[in-house]
Design a protein around this nucleic acid. Sequence first.
DNA 1: CGCCATATTGATCGGGGTCAACGGCTGTGG
DNA 2: CCACAGCCGTTGACCCCGATCAATATGGCG
Lengths: 241, 241
Amino acid sequence: MSDHLIRQLILRDRSLTPASRHRLNSGFGPSTTVPAGEDFVAKGSRPKHCTVVVSGWACSYDTLPDGRRQITAFHISGDFVDLQSFRLKRMDQGVGAISDCRIATLSHAAILDITETDPHLARLLWLSSLVDAAVLRQWLLSSGQRSALEHAAHLLCELFTRLRGVGMAAPGESFELPLSHADFAAALGISTVHVSRTLSELRTLNLFQWRGREAQILDWEGLQRVANFDPAYLMLSDDPR
Amino acid sequence: MSDHLIRQLILRDRSLTPASRHRLNSGFGPSTTVPAGEDFVAKGSRPKHCTVVVSGWACSYDTLPDGRRQITAFHISGDFVDLQSFRLKRMDQGVGAISDCRIATLSHAAILDITETDPHLARLLWLSSLVDAAVLRQWLLSSGQRSALEHAAHLLCELFTRLRGVGMAAPGESFELPLSHADFAAALGISTVHVSRTLSELRTLNLFQWRGREAQILDWEGLQRVANFDPAYLMLSDDPR
DNA sequence: CGCCATATTGATCGGGGTCAACGGCTGTGG
DNA sequence: CCACAGCCGTTGACCCCGATCAATATGGCG
């Protein structure tokens, strides 16, 4: 179990005690691997545990009967992919691997026990699901009000900020973005053709470039300005403001 | 304090004890009134309590600097409007009254105490925020993939089902829908002009009609079919399935 | 090397936006 | 009791962002 989960939690609450950290870590089973493209949580299932991404990229998605597909979240190293399953019981969406992934699970029984005996840690898990919801609200704002260019820029700002939170990206450097244009399109709610045109516009504006699995932000200030991005909702920095 | 909040919680967990119910209820301050159109939770504020709608309709929304506005949730009687403020501290959106509202508040201190000493009730509050997130995922799916007609139908199905949950709507009867077309448009992410056209199409299809504040579903099965609506995500029925 | 996925580019189409004029309701003051 | 204002909803005309269709690169991999 990599420590990216703990690292994210500490970014959100410095007062997490070593005892709680250890307790959380020791609750996980051994990590397993999932090949790219394979689902590891099925829509409609009733999981008995919650899953964390240890390495690689995954996404949550929902589909309409005729095949239209909406990605509702991207999950990177250290993210819970289905914390909601602890209480919702039945998955209202599927979760699949985008790249080859390693994943680890924490049983619902263990989480129940945390809520009974470690309220501080329990509140932190609750916070984690609240941040997921805050991200969803931003996606909804983007989907409803932002243009394709603004929407793409905003999503890239979000992903970069989150990757930075677990040390997988740094300002000025390129970072790994193992998505296909089809994934990106399913997250933005636009066609793959328009993804291609939108990315080429971002490149033309000297804001962002992406070739294969390697992406790079060329103008961080400019990209945030286009997107109207404010990272506060991600709760990944300690500055109290 | 009306009992719609408790009613909703019990729909989601029958095992809520009378002691917990009483404890929750007695934590609320006296209810106050808010006139239609007025905001009662400001974006960027740091609330010290969470607010519940006792009667009337409210909405959460976010705006872009140039004025584009996205409603992210409608709140009816018995709904928490900002449960996330308990942990997120800073509101990432505003909440305003759509019709004249009565509201009541529960201090963060009281919620903190609940998490320390009544884990069962705490889990139920957590569930409540998880259902809010499930609703958001449906809104995102609608916004990204459904046509305006499907999207409108889906939102109407959601609202009707939730109103029924608190006894404010019944199959075959008309119900109060105190929204303007502008509100509806800001929730769907379309223009008011297109709201008008879309509603007129629903009327033409004999699915739904709405005049002034009074709305009526003409064909519940048909409306759900157009919307591809499955109420399971709202967690408002007890059937275990 | 050749295959199949994925990405790009061009041409055309269409859902929904924008602009504008009009109609209907409600409230307020004369 | 009417006049009129203001807001909200409706309808028509036209426009544009992004969808769709189609042809053409590109590239990872057996």
